[in-house]
Simulated assay, not measured.
Amino acid sequence: MMIERLREYVGTETPTGDAAALNAFADRLTTRYTELGGTVRRIPAPTGDHLVADFPGRGPQAAAAPLLFLAHHDTVWPAGQLRDAMPWREADGIIHGPGVFDMKGGLVVLETALEQVADREHRPLRVVVVADEEIGSPSAREAVTAEAAGVYAAFGFEPPHPNGDLKTSRWGSTRVRIEVTGREAHAALDPSGGVSAIDELVDQLIAVRRIVADHDHVLCNVGTITGGGRTNVVPGSAAADIGFRFVDPAVEEAVLQAVTALRPVRDALLQVRVLSNRPAWQPSPATDELLAKVAAAARSVGQEIGGKAASGAADTNLTGWLGIPTLDGLGPLGKGAHAVHEQIVAATLAERAALVAAIIKTV
């Protein structure tokens, strides 16, 4: 049943930014969570609705602080990826397809666990599924922060470490766009009358590299560059999107202050904008205590689970940064996130569902 559900979900492609596709998928989740006893709210956003589903507690902990489960239904893959390059495929216990690992497998694990605990005693549960996680959750950050208020602990359904360990902290992740407006002119007849936006952008990117070099444990990736149009025209516009990763919040603040304070080196207009930000989630004793409880829950269903830091960012950065005990990586085991060989180990769908159900019943 889990594999059939996952095939259905993978077959419904949900590229980030395709609001119609994401909202259609959200309709499916709304129906499913309602069937499982949840009360569902939708938070409209230009990139697609975010979902919040509340499940009442049962028994002695019915009025206790809830557990928060964080997930997303957008993927990095464009429409047609399933047909053209990554068809659904099952072979030797491995399932291939766009989104199986990041993170529709995690969505199936979550709803299966909810089904397994439907008649058991547990805390109230809150599920938040966002529509733009793959671009840093720019429209979902406020919703995640608001829904995290007062929860007992937070759990993410992103992929785990390769050996199945959970993620106990994450690097901060910030996307920045540098936009330059120069002045067009004929590149041969009037070169001095123009101001090259591309030359200015190159100088600014060199300046960014110098800023990064002054700090430890910072990753910087220039992901896109656009600008110009013809070699006989001095380019009048150019832009670059940059991804930064940070371990230390103080370093993050220093780097971002320096980058956003950049000034043009020629007669050009320069705009530096932060597109999205996920602050660094650092290790904490509270998360260590939560991991110990989860390890005990795992042993109750015949599993061993550990935890360690991760470099990738997700919505759990927000809850960890807010000081909420947080763990991530409850999705199935696999590999190839954001790659054409994306895959999961089929048997770990049921194993992870059993683990999550045990967490719900005991934490």
Rank of each mutant, 00 (worst) to 15 (best):
L70I: 08
G57L: 12
V76G: 09
P98I: 12
V100K: 00
D92W: 01
I95H: 01
A113W: 02
L114V: 03
Q81N: 07
D102G: 04
L114Y: 01
A63I: 07
R120N: 05
A63M: 04
I94L: 06
G59M: 07
Q116W: 07
A91M: 02
V52A: 07
F55E: 00
V52S: 07
A53L: 08
L70S: 15
W88A: 05
R120C: 05
D54G: 10
E115R: 06
A64T: 14
E115W: 01
Q61G: 13
M86L: 10
E111V: 01
D92S: 06
Q81A: 14
A63E: 14
P66H: 09
F101W: 12
H73A: 07
L68S: 11
G105D: 13
D92N: 08
L67V: 02
F101R: 05
Q61E: 15
L70F: 13
A113C: 10
G106H: 02
L68C: 15
A64D: 15
I95A: 14
G93P: 04
L110H: 00
M103D: 11
D54A: 14
D74E: 10
A85S: 14
V108A: 05
P60T: 02
G99V: 04
L67P: 00
V117W: 03
D119F: 01
F101P: 05
L67I: 03
V100Q: 03
F69E: 09
L68F: 14
G97D: 01
T112N: 06
A71F: 05
G80V: 03
E90Y: 02
L110M: 15
F101E: 07
R83L: 03
L68A: 15
P56S: 14
W77I: 10
A113L: 09
E111D: 12
L70K: 08
V76Q: 08
A65S: 15
D84G: 07
A71W: 05
A71G: 13
V76L: 10
A79V: 08
D119E: 14
A118M: 09
G105P: 12
A91W: 00
A65C: 11
T112Q: 13
L110G: 01
F69D: 11
Q116N: 08
D54E: 15
L110P: 03
A62L: 04
V109S: 02
A64F: 08
V100C: 07
I95Y: 01
D84V: 06
A53N: 06
A63S: 13
K104H: 09
P60I: 04
L82R: 01
G80Q: 06
I94R: 08
P87F: 02
D102Q: 02
R120V: 06
G99L: 09
Q81E: 15
P56V: 13
H72R: 10
F55K: 07
D74G: 09
A91Q: 09
R120T: 09
H73W: 06
D119V: 12
F55L: 09
G59C: 11
W88L: 14
P78V: 03
A113E: 03
V108S: 04
P66D: 14
A65T: 14
G99Y: 08
G93F: 04
L107Y: 03
A64I: 13
V109P: 00
F101G: 02
L110N: 00
A65G: 12
I95G: 10
V52I: 08
P78S: 10
L67Y: 01
A79H: 08
L68D: 14
M86K: 09
F69S: 07
L67S: 02
